[in-house]
C-alpha cells in the first residue's frame, strides 16, 4: 500500500492542531483554571442575552414614565429611584448567583 503524503494536508493538520491547542487554552493552563474560564465565558454569554432582553423589556418602557415622574413629584421619583436600584441589585444578584451555581454545580 502506498501512502502519498500531501504537504498541504499535513500543513492544515498542523494548523488544526495549533488551533485545537489554543481552544484548549494551552497545555500550561491547569484543568481547573480552564474549566473556570470556560464557565465564566458561558456565563457571560448567557448574562449578555438576558441583559439585552432586560433593556428592551424594562428600561425602554420605564424611560418616559420616570421622566414624567421626575417632573411631577421629585420626592416620589427619589423613592422610586432608590427602590429600583435596590430591586435590580437583588434581582441581578440572584440571577448571577443562579448562573454561577448552574454552570459550576456548586456555590463559589
Amino acid at each position: 500500500m502506498i501512502f502519498v503524503i500531501d504537504e498541504k494536508a499535513e500543513s492544515s493538520q498542523k494548523t488544526f492542531a495549533r488551533f485545537s491547542s489554543i481552544l484548549r487554552l494551552a497545555p500550561f493552563m491547569k484543568a481547573d483554571t480552564r474549566k473556570t474560564l470556560f464557565s465564566f465565558l458561558v456565563e457571560l454569554a448567557v448574562y449578555t442575552i438576558l441583559i439585552t432582553f432586560y433593556f428592551f423589556l424594562v428600561l425602554h418602557f420605564l424611560g418616559s414614565w420616570l421622566e414624567g415622574l421626575g417632573k411631577e413629584s421629585i420626592k416620589l421619583y427619589a423613592l422610586v429611584a432608590i427602590t429600583l436600584i435596590i430591586g435590580q441589585a437583588v434581582l441581578l444578584e440572584w440571577v448571577t448567583t443562579f448562573l454561577f451555581r448552574l454552570l459550576r454545580g456548586r456555590s463559589e
Binding site: I51, L92, E93
Partner: peptide, 17 residues
C-alpha cells in the same frame, strides 16, 4: 436612575467576580 440601572447591569457581574 436609568443610566445607573444600565451601568449596574455590568457592575452586578463584575462585583461578583
Amino acid at each position: 436612575i436609568l443610566v445607573a440601572l444600565v451601568m449596574h447591569t455590568g457592575a452586578a457581574i463584575g462585583a461578583q467576580i
